[in-house]
Design a protein around this nucleic acid. Structure first.
Length: 325
DNA sequence: GTCCAGGAGCCAT
DNA sequence: ATGGCTCATGGA
């Protein structure tokens, strides 16, 4: 389906095409609840459901979620990504930044090493992108992620937002939606109420991290400007934040594309594909990953992660092997 | 029932 | 430095 068709089915009266906005007084007339971000090489399903973000739900047409304080519905169309919001806006740059539609995927892929396992993952997951999430939501989400399956993380965060997040406007016919609760708010929630969101032992960590972030140590907004090692060290000071969660926050929300989160899936992938029948420690694999995969190593990591998971979840137990290095 | 999930902190070697 | 144990909870 074309973008214009989707817009017409929604609200033909205030239709605006991206790229047609001219600066000047007429700009106000361009306010709309709809737009189309032009992009190619973008796999929305893999990007929104691939374990970077946990708030996107499939709906009748596409995915519904909340970015910053706004409800958004996204759908893949021929020209790129169709988007609907609850309230009219003329500036869609927040969404383009979140989705990374302005970045050339081929430029990123060109920095990857040419080894077989990674190239095979890139071929299988063509169009997978990294989002640029809001840092607090991202950090808090991954504090809640430890030894949890992605579906459970989604459930926990859903309950958390529903109970402690501010409601956001939603178009008629859609389920209610909520902003991610602020650090200040969560710092004030009793641990027992957090545990009631099914997060178990992570409740203590979440509350403690919320308190620290609320008082500005560290100031998440300042971290992107600091060197990677310093930004990482600042995150590692937080209770319940170790190397993996710190790297997730650095990679998915703070702009450090070199940060390489090592979770159980990626560990398995590295051992199996790059060091078969050799005994390599986590520390060794982290050092290998930090150097081998280059300046966009974290991006490469996402391809390995997604490829492994797809392969494992497919057609019973018949796993097609990934070629080794 | 058993194993495992986008881990981290703590303690004994 | 390194390895094992514990922390809740639910899916497979």
């Amino acid at each position: 389906m074309a973008c214009a068709d989707l817009v017409r089915t929604g609200d033909a009266a205030r239709h605006r095409q991206i790229g047609s906005a001219e600066p000047g007084p007429s700009r106000l007339a361009d306010h709309s609840r709809f737009t189309c971000l032009t992009v190619s090489d973008y796999d929305l399903a893999a990007t929104l459901e691939g374990g970077q973000a946990f708030r996107w739900q499939r709906c009748a047409e596409g995915w519904a979620g909340v970015v910053q304080q706004r409800w958004v519905r996204l759908a893949r169309v021929a020209e790129g990504i169709f988007a609907e919001t609850a309230e009219a806006t003329s500036d869609w740059s927040w969404l383009a930044k979140y989705l990374g539609t302005d970045e050339q995927l081929t430029d990123v892929l060109a920095t990857f090493p040419a080894d077989r396992p990674l190239q095979s993952a890139v071929t299988a997951c063509r169009g997978l992108r990294l989002l640029r999430q809001e840092p607090w939501e991202c950090l808090a989400s991954f504090v809640l992620s430890s030894t949890k399956q992605i579906v459970q993380i989604q459930q926990i965060i859903g309950l958390l937002c529903e109970r402690f997040g501010e409601p956001v406007p939603v178009p008629a016919g859609h389920r209610p939606a909520f902003a991610f609760p602020t650090a200040e708010r969560l710092a004030a929630v009793p641990e027992s109420e957090l545990r009631a969101c099914k997060m178990g032992f992570r409740a203590r960590y979440l509350r403690a991290v919320a308190a620290r972030i609320a008082e500005g140590r560290p100031d998440l907004r300042a971290l992107p400007e600091r060197p990677l090692a310093e930004a990482r060290a600042a995150l590692l000071e937080l209770p319940g934040v170790g190397p993996k969660i710190a790297n997730c926050a650095l990679l998915f929300s703070l702009g450090f594309r070199r940060a390489f989160p090592l979770d159980v899936w990626v560990l398995k992938a590295l051992r199996q594909l790059y060091f078969p029948r050799r005994r390599v420690t986590v520390r060794g694999l982290q050092e290998f990953s930090d150097t081998h995969f280059g300046p966009n190593g974290g991006y490469a990591q996402q391809y390995l992660f997604h490829h492994m998971r797809q392969r494992a979840g497919r057609a019973g137990r018949v796993a097609t092997p990934i070629p080794r290095a």
